[in-house]
Amino acid sequence: MPTYRVRPSKQMAVFGAVFGAVIVIVGLVQMAGSDAGGFVWLWAAFGVAIIAFNLWSAFGRHGHTQTITTDDGDTPPTRVGQTVERER
């Protein structure tokens, strides 16, 4: 029973990290003068998590977002922009 790791393409994961950084920066600048309190920290924490997840997916050796196990020997179907690697 072969097992495959599925990850987004490097370009898509890096774009996600850059987009996450833009969202964090714009959000923090917009909330800087307001009395947002703990929401600012929550916003920043989620933003850092999005950035970290995307960078891990792009550059980590085991940075896959899905694991597919099949009963047949053929490769599983993929979507455009995904990389499929067979686990050994």
Rank of each mutant, 00 (worst) to 15 (best):
V14R: 04
A13N: 09
A44R: 00
Q11P: 10
M31P: 03
Q30H: 11
F19Q: 11
V24Q: 00
F19G: 07
S34M: 09
I25K: 10
S9C: 05
G16K: 02
S34Y: 08
V24M: 13
G37T: 01
V26H: 06
G37E: 01
A21F: 12
G33W: 05
L42R: 08
I51D: 00
L28P: 03
P8C: 14
W41L: 13
A45W: 06
G27F: 01
A52S: 03
G16I: 05
V48G: 12
A32L: 13
K10M: 08
F53P: 06
V14F: 08
A49P: 04
A32K: 13
S9W: 02
G33M: 06
A44P: 08
P8T: 15
F46M: 11
A13L: 01
I25E: 04
V48N: 09
W43L: 03
A36I: 00
A32R: 08
A32V: 03
V18L: 15
M31Q: 07
Q11L: 15
G38P: 10
V29D: 12
V29I: 14
V18G: 02
I51Y: 00
I25M: 11
A21L: 15
M31Y: 08
M12S: 14
A21D: 04
V14G: 02
Q11K: 14
I23R: 11
I25C: 14
I51E: 04
A36P: 06
Q11E: 10
